[in-house]
Design a binder for these strands. Structure first.
Lengths: 219, 219
DNA sequence: TAAAACTGGATTGTCGACAATTTATCGCCA
DNA sequence: TGGCGATAAATTGTCGACAATCCAGTTTTA
């Protein structure tokens, strides 16, 4: 349901997307070194495009680079996860606030419909409220903020890191029922154009999911 | 007083820093096209390093790039300024909150001393509380958050754009006295380890300066 | 013996040339 | 005359080769 506007046009694009996918899904191990020559043979492109791909991954906070030494995939740590969720709380809280101000009535109706369709499926026991639904919900609100910087920071920056943690720490369907209720309340606030409340609810929603994850990893 | 840890080591670094400076300070006009060959002759480096510099500038939101077409310096618009300050409010608010939790007593004392030294100078009429002091203050709190993502997003991302608006819209010493009092209250909250209040005061501080700018540009 | 200096191997940084795509110019035709 | 299509010029994307830097192992020296 998420409309991927990201479409690779150049070879560097394809390499970037592919490498990002491989890193997020763990096919390229966290903390491992990224050899330019090695990758260039693996993906059958020149070193120049690999370099560009790595540069973009660095901007996405997925790899770290040192001059004249090389690039490594980031390592996943409990502290890193906490820091990541602090930024999410801040940015997505603001996104919810702005969404309450800037989403069109039509977009809000769509969002509500989406949530209802999820609700029906969950209620009828056909499926669980799983990661895809959660991601979809958050994406819509982020886009609804209509704030260019907010959107790019979250969608081509932080969110891939979030997914990396989710995939590699193996937490696909967390807090299915409670999270759903929280989503409902957030949409309600947005529908009422209550920006203040929407932000507060979103921040608490993310705080809760952070706590839930911390418990799961018994930090 | 701001300690620039950013030190260019490679040619691409130097080109990146130089070009960023030229853009921020308006030597390269906002909205103008960045020709790779042209820049490579201007800075006396190969096109490859110019490309890398441009890629990094894109990650900093200072230029926009379209595949097979080229890169342009961003254009400065009132809407863009508003969006920028919304992100600042969100991120720096969180930074203040975290700073109240994570700064060491020593760092807080330093911050207080810095503010006092500024205060003495201002009080004695030797100087105004100007941009450098403001920037210095905000930097310390951002670094005090100890949050890697927050720090990099603000210091090598958003802040250069803020400076670009400041320089090119010609607002160097805005709201000198009131801003100073606000800074004092924020430090007080941090000193009391009152994270909640520190965040709220920082957000209001940024909201105020946004309003002040909007008035100045009579939007 | 331990620390400093050297050397070899490998990796990253930089360059100029070629290929692919876009944009501008000109001629053609309705 | 106005718009459409083909060709030419210019710009970006990609490539392989060379130069500079780092790292490990070895040798030299105090």
């Amino acid at each position: 349901m998420t409309f991927f506007t990201e479409q690779p046009v150049t070879a560097a694009d394809k390499t970037f997307f592919q490498l990002r996918k491989d890193i997020v899904e763990g096919d390229v191990a966290a903390g491992s070194k990224l050899s330019e020559t090695e990758l260039s043979t693996k993906y059958a492109v020149s070193r120049a495009v690999v370099r560009e791909a790595i540069n973009r991954l660095e901007a996405s906070h997925l790899v770290e680079r040192k001059a004249n030494v090389g690039a490594r995939v980031v390592t996943l740590t409990p502290e890193g996860l906490v820091e990541l969720y602090q930024v999410r709380e801040s940015l997505e809280g603001m996104a919810a606030r702005l969404a309450a101000q800037n989403m069109t009535d039509h977009e809000i109706a769509d969002l509500q419909a989406l949530l209802n369709s999820h609700f029906d499926k969950v209620q009828s026991g056909l499926t669980y409220y799983q990661e895809a639904g959660d991601v979809d919900f958050h994406y819509r609100i982020i886009l609804g903020s209509k704030n260019k910087h907010l959107i790019s920071m979250l969608t081509d920056g932080i969110y891939h890191l979030v997914r990396m943690y989710r995939v590699q720490l193996g937490m696909s369907g967390p807090r299915v029922t409670t999270a759903f209720d929280e989503h409902k309340h957030i949409v309600q606030a947005i529908c009422n154009r209550d920006a203040e409340l929407a932000e507060m609810l979103m921040r608490r929603h993310i705080l809760y999911s952070k706590s839930s994850i911390e418990n799961k990893l018994n930090l």
